[in-house]
Amino acid sequence: MEPVIATATEISPWALFLQADIVVKLVMLGLLMASVWSWAIIFERSRAIRRINREATQFEDWFWKAESLDALFEPATRATHPSARLFVSGMNEWRRSLARGRFDREGIRTRLASTTQVSIGREIDTLGDRLNILATIGAVAPFVGLFGTVWGIMRSFTAIAASQNTTLAVVAPGIAEALFATALGLFAAIPAVIGYNRLLHGVGRLEARLGAFAEEFQGLLGRQLDSMDSK
């Protein structure tokens, strides 16, 4: 059975898909699904980073305006953004250290630093857990499209050999079908790569912001600890 090749008048994305071999169709569908998946991740992570930055600004304002850290603790336990969770983790460690009844200043500072760093790492891992998908799509999609292209060209050459006709009207549709797979690979890969780099930059800036807040928080607790030792 001779493979079906679209005519020159039928060269359109939909016609090329319908006339494609089952292998090329699977490649095209897979690339379209990868593109939809990458755009969904880009939009979801972008909204999450904007929301977290907005909530971090609000929380930092409350933090510096609060009468005491204990007064801020209860509202912070009900919040769900990283800055509040970092604050709650540090306060829990602070309270556990004070409950021991003796002050080991260096030990308390070390545990506070460790607790806040673990909290930051956990939050950044949560935000970045889907970025590897974008990196994978950006790296693999062009090669998947190239595979579809090679397969389509092989099929086109088979049709040419079967028809004994090498005119452009016969060759062009098959080549167009093959190149369409490459275009879909780039269509999936380019947004994924750009989205990965932009989101990675946003996550890096958020990590730096959380690190700066953690340093200020630890400094404030350290000053309280020094004042308690001086009494």
Results as ranks from 00 to 15, higher is better:
R209E: 15
A214Q: 03
L18C: 09
A66L: 08
V170I: 11
H201I: 05
R205H: 12
I11F: 08
Q19N: 15
I49M: 15
S83V: 13
A34E: 06
L168D: 12
I108F: 01
A214N: 02
F143Y: 13
L179Y: 00
W94Y: 04
K65H: 13
A169V: 01
N197R: 13
G90P: 04
V24T: 15
A8M: 15
E207T: 07
R223M: 08
N165S: 15
W151P: 05
Y196E: 00
E177F: 04
V193E: 01
A189M: 00
T110K: 01
S89E: 10
D226M: 08
I124Q: 01
A6W: 09
L16S: 14
I5P: 00
V140A: 12
V140H: 07
G128S: 12
Q164W: 04
I194Y: 02
W14G: 13
P142V: 00
W151S: 06
Q58D: 05
A71T: 13
L127M: 11
G222D: 14
N92L: 08
R198Q: 13
W62D: 12
I22K: 11
S163E: 13
A139T: 04
G90C: 08
I41K: 11
M228W: 07
L112F: 00
S119G: 07
H81R: 02
S97A: 15
F87Q: 09
A20K: 12
V150E: 04
W151R: 07
